[in-house]
Simulated assay, not measured.
Amino acid sequence: MDDEEEEFIPPPPPPGPPPLLREDQLLHLARQGWLFLELPDALSQSMTDLLRHSSQYFDAPDIEKKELYPSKLGTEFGYYPIAEEKEYITLRCRIHTDPNAKAKPAAKLAASLEASTVDAWHHAGVLLWRILCDIARASDLDVSVWNDILDGTLDMPDSEDQLTYALMRLFRYFPSTGHAEEHTDLGLLTLCIGDGTGLQVLDRFNSDQKPAWVDGPVGTHTATVLVGQTLRALSARTMTAGAHRVVGNSQGRQSVVFALRHSTRHDVDFSLFGGEGKLHPTELWKTIQAGKVNINTEKEKRDAQRARFRTTRPGAEAEALEHATRGQG
């Protein structure tokens, strides 16, 4: 009598969301610090809608743009123009939610912009969370390591008292002169899409004698995912921060940048990632920013920041100075 064949029981699915990236994509992201990724239809459509509403906002008179979103927290909130380079708006929570104000054209414009941002923020947040879960699994970590770090970041907050460090930033680069210097981002992961050429990422594999730049994708069907300095720190530098820049073109460029950063609600426990100790979220933020020049401020301020950095760190090694600029662009 033949032995009965044992019934095959498939292994349980991995915890958390379904895997998103292939092994080769994860390796590329870790080593290069960037990855070109095709977007799900829902996210692609929400980015298309957000680009359309951001274009309407940028077409408004300057005084109206400033009144709707006054600049504050440095460059971390509101509308900010930089002469001969770009203008951009940083959105971190809902502002214009008064239903009675929607009759006014300016308030209606802002409400439409924020509604599109809410939708895009959610879809982008879910996508980047899935990538972080893939990174955790590949590192033999439980996906729950992200629970506190991402608390309140995956959806746009309803008010300023719910802010985290995450943000949505919308850019309009001026034709020919619009640009952003080479830099890395501060957060965990950044998702960047644009309606024109200009975004370039550094190919570290082929940058021997001089930097080798690769053009980023154009349109809302494919995005550039970038590793930020916070994820590099959590991974004990096994993840590379993605160096990138924006170069000018004759048509100009609009882009949507979603920066997934750590929550403000919990201490960051490095022991979950194989390290030691905990940091208050504010202390982690200050540490990540230290020695970095903000490319999203005026040129004169950037130059002053570089001068201070050279003065305070005259003997800094090359590694400390590498990509000592930061921003989302």
Rank of each mutant, 00 (worst) to 15 (best):
D2G: 15
E6H: 14
P13L: 06
P14D: 12
P17K: 01
P19C: 15
L20Y: 06
L27Q: 11
L29K: 00
R31V: 05
Q32G: 01
G33M: 15
D41R: 09
Q45N: 07
S46H: 02
T48C: 02
H53Q: 12
H53E: 13
H53L: 04
S55L: 12
Y57I: 14
A60P: 08
D62Q: 00
I63H: 13
E67H: 03
L68Q: 09
P70Y: 07
L73F: 08
E84N: 15
E85S: 12
I89P: 11
I89M: 12
I89A: 04
T90P: 08
L91Y: 10
R94Y: 09
P99T: 08
P99D: 00
N100C: 08
A101W: 01
K102P: 11
L109Y: 05
L109A: 07
S112R: 15
D119G: 09
D119I: 10
A120G: 02
W121I: 02
G125Y: 07
L127V: 12
R130F: 04
L132T: 09
D134I: 15
L141I: 14
V145T: 11
V145Q: 14
L150F: 09
L150D: 06
D151F: 04
T153M: 09
L154H: 02
D155G: 04
M156Y: 15
M156P: 08
P157R: 04
D161L: 06
M168T: 12
R169I: 10
R169H: 04
F171M: 03
Y173D: 08
P175R: 03
P175S: 02
P175E: 01
H179N: 09
H179R: 11
H179Q: 15
A180I: 11
T184S: 05
D185L: 10
G187F: 10
L191S: 01
C192H: 12
F205C: 03
F205V: 09
D208W: 08
A212F: 15
W213M: 05
V214Y: 12
V214F: 10
G216V: 07
G219L: 04
G219W: 01
T220S: 06
H221E: 11
T222E: 15
A233H: 05
L234A: 02
L234R: 00
S235Q: 04
M239P: 10
M239A: 09
A241N: 04
A243H: 01
R245F: 02
V246K: 09
V246G: 06
G248S: 10
G248D: 02
G252C: 10
Q254C: 13
V256I: 13
A259T: 03
R265M: 08
D267W: 05
V268M: 11
D269A: 05
S271L: 12
L272I: 03
L272M: 04
G274I: 00
K278I: 07
T282P: 00
L284G: 07
K286N: 13
K286P: 00
K286S: 05
T287I: 13
Q289W: 15
Q289F: 13
N296S: 14
E300V: 14
R302A: 11
R313H: 14
R313D: 14
P314Q: 09
G315K: 03
E317M: 10
E319Q: 14
L321W: 03
H323P: 00
T325P: 02
G327H: 06
